[in-house]
Amino acid sequence: MDGMAGTSSRVTWAVNLSAFILVVLWVLPTVGLLISSFRDRDQISASGWWTALSASEQNIQIRAAAPDEAQPEGSLWVIEGEVAEGGREVTAFGVNSRRPVEFAPGEVADRNGVAVTVTDTGAYRIAYPEKPEGSRGLRLFVTTVEPPRFTLENYETVLFSEGIGRSFLNTFTVTIPATVIPILIAAFAAYALAWMEFPGRALLIAVVVGLLVVPLQMALIPLLKLHNSIGIGKAYFGIWMAHTGFGLPLAIYLLRNYIAGLPKEVIESARVDGATDFDIFRRIVLPLSFPALASFAIFQFLWVWNDLLIATVFLGNNEDQLVMTGRLRELLGSRGGDWEILAASAFVSIAVPILVFFSMQRYLVRGLLAGSVKGG
Score class of each variant (00 low, 15 high):
residue 247 G to Y: 05
residue 316 G to C: 07
residue 376 G to I: 14
residue 136 R to V: 14
residue 116 V to K: 00
residue 361 Q to T: 07
residue 359 S to Q: 08
residue 132 P to H: 02
residue 17 L to Q: 09
residue 275 A to N: 12
residue 305 W to A: 01
residue 295 S to Q: 10
residue 252 I to A: 02
residue 52 A to N: 00
residue 67 P to E: 11
residue 139 R to M: 06
residue 227 H to V: 01
residue 310 I to V: 14
residue 214 V to T: 10
residue 135 S to M: 08
residue 184 L to I: 15
residue 298 I to H: 09
residue 140 L to M: 06
residue 368 L to Y: 04
residue 275 A to D: 09
residue 37 S to G: 12
residue 38 F to V: 13
residue 167 S to I: 09
residue 76 L to G: 03
residue 237 F to H: 09
residue 39 R to W: 02
residue 374 K to E: 14
residue 57 E to V: 15
residue 371 G to C: 06
residue 180 V to M: 11
residue 328 L to Q: 08
residue 106 G to M: 01
residue 53 L to M: 14
residue 165 G to H: 06
residue 315 L to E: 05
residue 34 L to S: 11
residue 155 Y to L: 00
residue 154 N to L: 00
residue 22 L to Y: 06
residue 275 A to I: 01
residue 52 A to V: 05
residue 263 P to A: 03
residue 17 L to N: 02
residue 121 T to Q: 06
residue 140 L to K: 02
residue 231 G to C: 00
residue 337 G to R: 14
residue 303 W to R: 12
residue 54 S to G: 13
residue 234 K to L: 14
residue 206 A to I: 10
residue 104 A to I: 01
residue 367 G to I: 05
residue 59 N to Q: 15
residue 142 V to M: 04
residue 212 L to W: 07
residue 84 A to I: 06
residue 322 L to M: 15
residue 120 D to K: 05
residue 177 P to K: 08
residue 201 R to H: 09
residue 120 D to Y: 01
residue 280 I to Q: 11
residue 267 I to K: 08
residue 75 S to V: 13
residue 108 V to R: 11
residue 15 V to P: 02
residue 344 A to K: 13
residue 229 S to N: 15
residue 40 D to S: 14
residue 75 S to P: 07
residue 217 Q to P: 06
residue 283 R to C: 00
residue 10 R to T: 07
residue 205 I to N: 10
residue 376 G to K: 15
residue 211 L to I: 05
residue 260 A to Y: 03
residue 160 F to M: 09
residue 363 Y to P: 04
residue 162 E to N: 13
residue 332 L to F: 13
residue 335 R to M: 13
residue 243 H to M: 06
residue 347 F to M: 04
residue 194 A to T: 10
residue 286 L to P: 02
residue 91 T to W: 02
residue 342 L to P: 03
residue 248 L to N: 13
residue 273 D to E: 13
residue 37 S to R: 12
residue 170 N to C: 10
residue 205 I to L: 15
residue 174 V to N: 01
residue 367 G to L: 09
residue 237 F to C: 00
residue 200 G to R: 09
residue 91 T to R: 07
residue 120 D to F: 01
residue 203 L to D: 00
residue 230 I to Y: 11
residue 264 K to P: 06
residue 105 P to C: 00
residue 97 S to Y: 05
residue 281 F to K: 02
residue 159 L to K: 03
residue 279 D to G: 12
residue 236 Y to I: 08
residue 84 A to N: 03
residue 70 A to G: 03
residue 223 L to G: 03
residue 54 S to Q: 09
residue 233 G to R: 10
residue 229 S to Y: 02
residue 119 T to L: 06
residue 89 E to Q: 15
residue 193 L to P: 10
residue 245 G to A: 15
residue 374 K to M: 05
residue 152 L to V: 12
residue 313 V to R: 03
residue 171 T to Y: 05
residue 19 A to V: 14
residue 126 I to F: 03
residue 122 G to I: 10
residue 155 Y to P: 06
residue 257 N to D: 08
residue 288 L to W: 05
residue 234 K to N: 15
residue 179 T to E: 06
residue 116 V to G: 00
residue 20 F to K: 10
residue 133 E to H: 10
residue 158 V to G: 05
residue 279 D to H: 12
residue 348 V to S: 05
residue 208 V to H: 01
residue 117 T to P: 07
residue 105 P to I: 04
residue 44 I to G: 04
